[in-house]
Write a protein that binds this DNA or RNA. Structure first.
Lengths: 142, 142
DNA sequence: TTGCTTTTGAAAATCACTTTCATTTATAAG
DNA sequence: CTTATAAATGAAAGTGATTTTCAAAAGCAA
C-alpha cells in the first residue's frame, strides 16, 4: 500500500520531469506513516523533530505535489487549516466530523451518491466531485 | 420578504442593546438586493460605488451580525472567499457549483438528508449540521 | 566534471480577514 | 435641548495561513 503510493509518486515525478530529492522522500515517508487526516502544521512539526532543517515552504510545496500526483487529497473542514488525506485510486469517501473533539470518521454511501447523481442530472449538471461533511457530536463525546 | 428580514435584524439589534446606524441600514439594503450568494469583496465593491467612505472592516463586522441575527448564513466553497447567502427561518439547502462559470444552484433533497441521519446514527453521531456541495459543469457550460 | 535546471530554505510578500484606537454617533438621562 | 456614555466607524496595523522570491545547493544528463 505504502509502496504503491511511493511508486505512483515516483512515476509522477518522472513524467513531469521533476527531480527526486531527499526532502521529498522524507516528507512522503512521514506523510504515509501519519494519521489519515493530517494538517500541514502537524506534518511540519513531526518532520522537524527528526529533520530540523526542513523548510516550511518545502512542506507546502511537496504536499501540493502529492495532491497533484493523486496520492493525497486536500480537505478543509472550515477551521482554517488545510489537511491532507491519503487518497486511494478511484475511491471517494465523506466525513463525519465531531465538533467537540475533532474526531474524523470516514464513510461511504452508495445510496447518497446515487441520489446526488439524480439531483445533478435534474439540473443538467455533470458532477466532477463532491463534498459531504456531517458535523455533530460523536458517540464518545455525548 | 425583505421587510421581514429588516424587522428581524432590527429586533436582533434591539435585543442585543446595539445601535441602529446609517451604515448598517445601507449594508442591509445592499445585501438584500444582491444575488443570493455574495462574497464580501463583491458586496464591499457594490457598496463603495454609492458610499465611497464606508469601511472594509464595517462590512465584515456587519455581515457577521447578519449571520448572528439569522438573516444570513456564511458559506465557503473552498475558493478562499467567504460568501453570505440569504437565510430563511428553518430552511436548509445544499449547492451545485459550476466549476467553469461559478454559477451556484441551490437544492434540497429529503432522501439525502434521511440517509445522512442513518449514516450518522450508525456511527453514534448526532448531526448538528452538514455541508453538501456538488461540483461540476452546469448545463450552459457543457 | 560540466552545464543546465530544478529544488531548497529563509525571509519577504500576499491574501483574507481581524483588531486597535482615536474619533464620531446613537441613545439614554437630565 | 444639552450632556454623558457606551457603541460604531474608518484607517491603519496586525494575524495567520499560505505563497513567492531569490540566492545558494543539489539532481541529472551528457
Amino acid at each position: 500500500m505504502k509502496h504503491a503510493k511511493k511508486n505512483k509518486f515516483r512515476l509522477f515525478i518522472a513524467q513531469k520531469g521533476l527531480k527526486s530529492t531527499r526532502q521529498r522522500d522524507i516528507i512522503l515517508d512521514c506523510f504515509l506513516s501519519s494519521s489519515r487526516h493530517i494538517s500541514i502544521e502537524e506534518l511540519y512539526l513531526k518532520l522537524r523533530s527528526k529533520n530540523p532543517n526542513i523548510g516550511y515552504a518545502t512542506v507546502y510545496r511537496t504536499l501540493k505535489l502529492f495532491a497533484e500526483s493523486g496520492i493525497a487529497r486536500e480537505i478543509q473542514f472550515g477551521d482554517g487549516q488545510t489537511r491532507y488525506e491519503h487518497a486511494n485510486e478511484g475511491e471517494h469517501h465523506d466525513h463525519l466530523v465531531c465538533t467537540r473533539c475533532g474526531t474524523i470518521i470516514e464513510f461511504e454511501n452508495q445510496d447518497i451518491e446515487q441520489l446526488q447523481q439524480e439531483v445533478a442530472g435534474a439540473h443538467g449538471f455533470q458532477i466532477e466531485n463532491h463534498k459531504l461533511e456531517l458535523y455533530g457530536i460523536c458517540a464518545k463525546c455525548r
